[in-house]
Design a binder for these strands. Structure first.
Lengths: 218, 218
DNA sequence: GTCTATAATTTGATAGAC
DNA sequence: GTCTATCAAATTATAGAC
């Protein structure tokens, strides 16, 4: 199962070298199969290499997964923060953040899907060594930071009257759920036109923002 | 790893017998760990039994997973259909369907989480035998039927002017994403009061419905 | 740095006792 | 119907050649 026709074609696409090649290959396979169903052979296969190369850079599968996850969160948090720090009314800012989120998922689907869909299962954290556990706790903290930006804008929006009264901690889960679910149903192997991608991100962003709006803000 | 302190406590809770005991135990473990990370020993362990019992009722892990999945979809589809067939304006119907969805997830968390969060990965379908593949295709069909009810109400709502103009196929993904994501963040091991559960389902249902509303419908 | 063994473990599935 | 014992395959990780 390790060397299918598909992995052969994939090799040509991976042109980065060294540690980065490993992390990008890992992102691809973790995205498709999740943590447990991914084998070190699968990852090596995507690079047209063998396990030895993977273990040269990472001492365990958990450590590699943690690095992929961290890279994903670092990237999306950085991009969302750009919008978060802009001077905009809460509803416009929220809409822009949602759109940036979807756009990021489209551009870096493999990385983002690892970060959002394939969450950190409890049993993964439990089975980790102390060193690995520290990496995984860091990831949880980064995710809280990411969610925190959306939460803050919701709180601001309720205060300013743009958004209706609602428990912010649940509202933020609802909005991010609508966005993150994109990683579940979108199929990156199908060719999708730019216009269609724009329609998707606009529909999702407007849905998420309107779901929060107060009557007077329409 | 198969017999932890937790699985010991779990045994007392499982009182059903025979095939049903297997399916309920399997639902619990699949919910927590997903398909690949779940072992047949884990499932037997929850019942205080051994693998032999599981294999007496199911000839493979995929067959068992398919049955759990099918049961989950059958249950939620039946419940949602009750609301779907009621005579209500589209926006009210949609709101009621969302609320029923969340209520079902709360009451049958294990089953629903297997059905929504731990989807049917492509590599699972690919590696299945022909007989198993037939079961899995049936599951896909049931899920389309489930989604189809939400889709229909959205289309009706746009036509009637309750909902704004938006591509229904993406709108339905957005709304169901907000709802299904509940299965990702909700922690059933924590005690949550009835009042708080009501707040959650109301917040999520209102968010999902308002995300679709047209200006004139507020 | 990368590969080829290979060790050590886990795990899906089966056979046969009770 | 349930359990014990066990096989066969898969998989994480390591050791050492090149």
């Amino acid at each position: 199962m390790a060397s299918t026709a598909m992995s052969r074609g994939a090799r040509a696409l991976e042109q980065s070298v060294g540690r980065e090649a490993v992390i990008r290959a890992a992102a691809r396979v973790f995205m498709e199969r999740g943590f447990t169903a991914t084998t070190m052979d699968d990852i090596a296969d995507v690079m047209g290499a063998t396990k030895g190369r993977v273990y040269h850079y990472y001492r365990s599968k958990v450590a590699l997964f943690a690095d992929v996850h961290e890279l994903a969160l670092l990237m999306i948090t950085t991009r969302i923060r750009q919008v978060f720090e802009a001077e905009l009314p809460p509803d416009e800012k929220f809409h822009a953040m949602c759109k940036e989120h979807i756009r990021t998922m489209i551009e870096e689907f493999a990385l983002c899907r690892v970060g959002s869909v394939h969450g950190l299962d409890r049993h993964l954290i439990e089975s980790a060594s102390t060193q690995e556990a520290r990496m995984l706790r860091k990831i949880v903290k980064m995710r809280d930071e990411f969610e925190g930006m959306f939460l803050q804008v919701i709180i601001d929006g309720i205060r300013s009257g743009h958004f209706r009264e609602a428990p912010p901690k649940y509202a933020v889960k609802a909005a991010l759920g609508a966005l993150n679910w994109f990683g579940v149903w979108f199929d990156p192997t199908k060719k999708t036109s730019e216009a269609e991608l724009a329609t998707m991100s606009e529909t999702l962003a407007t849905f998420s923002t309107d779901g929060l709006r107060s009557l007077s803000s329409r």
